[in-house]
Design a protein around this nucleic acid. Structure first.
Lengths: 195, 195
DNA sequence: ACCTGAACACCGTTCAAGT
DNA sequence: ACCTGAACACCGTTCAAGT
């Protein structure tokens, strides 16, 4: 009897990435040899599709930014007009804490490929648009968009990192996010003269 | 001629930690075998002082929190009364970006030993005290201290993580920290009735 | 074009044995 | 009490060889 499938036809690359996502979600250690085993190929086979381990990790991170972007956009679409900032923030920290290992990969390296930088920018684009719109309607102070939005987004990224680091109680997260959103809105509000 | 020192008398534990700090600072990969090589002992020798690799990493993180705490306290001591929040924030992000690998270790695990949790709390204690004092003088709104301070500290932690992830330009950091500090102060300010 | 199998240079961890 | 040296079970990466 010949083996059912000696060669992995056509989709080993996709199969490996899928197994990698699962290992990440399971919280397991990611090794190329383990992924090869799960795919039923030799340990040297992944080399045909990824030059090295880092390249596979980069693909995972790239996909992570795309998923994050889609998740955030969806949250904004569902939210009522006045609560979009809160909805964005909630979506961000929940994505982060539900994809802890993936988030680590996404924010791990100091250097990113062009594709990954682009995906990262895209992921944050909806939030920047929200701030820009806030400026247009006068809800948010005028000024350089990057300077205004970045510290605010850093707040939620920081909360996400702290929860993943185990330094915040998970049950406190929602109230902290809500508080942060409220404080930020106040801090970003234009002040009347003399105010 | 006998070997100068076959046995490492007394301080191998300290020696290993010192080499580990140096490897971290150099941005190199931390392996027990490499540390043993640097210390001039066999690869099995570290086992006498650290049950496993994680235990050594935990000691590094513990020391990291102690150094961070000292660094933040020193920054507060040097700052003028009105600029302590800004001084704290600057000190935090600078420590983080100057000790990138160490910070990753400190905030890596979801679970911390009692000693490490204690050191982490101590590191942040001076900032909490600052907020508490702000509440006492009326510069900061009343309410649960944790709920008020955490989102603010998360902002700076977030900025630190983003800079270490290469998502912010290092030359923009100081202005972002200053902006964030100003916005937070405004958002945390008590509002007069009707304000 | 894609995969295998052996090989190489690393790991962390264990353990009997040395001093 | 502390360290060594061999051993074991893993890695990532390379490369000649197979189909």
């Amino acid at each position: 009897m010949p083996p059912v499938r000696t060669y992995h036809h056509g989709n080993l690359r996709v199969t490996l990435l899928a197994h990698a996502e699962r290992v990440l979600a399971e919280g397991g250690e990611l090794s190329l040899r383990e992924l090869a085993r799960r795919a039923g190929v030799s340990h040297a086979a992944p080399r045909r599709h990824f030059a090295d381990k880092q390249q596979l990790l980069d693909e995972l991170a790239l996909d992570g930014f795309r998923r994050l972007g889609a998740h955030l956009s969806a949250a904004l679409d569902e939210a009522s007009y006045d609560e979009r900032m809160l909805a964005w923030a909630r979506a961000y920290v929940h994505f982060a804490s539900e994809h802890r290992a993936l988030l680590d990969l996404m924010f791990a390296g100091k250097h990113r490929s062009a594709a990954m930088s682009e995906a990262a920018n895209q992921a944050f684009a909806s939030a920047f648009a929200l701030f820009q719109e806030g400026q247009a309607t006068g809800a948010i102070i005028a000024g350089d968009l990057e300077r205004i939005a970045t510290p605010a987004l850093a707040t939620f990224h920081g909360l996400a990192e702290l929860i993943n680091a185990g330094m915040l109680r998970a049950e406190d997260l929602d109230v902290l996010v809500a508080d942060a959103t409220e404080r930020l809105a106040l801090g970003l509000r234009p002040r009347s003269v003399g105010g």
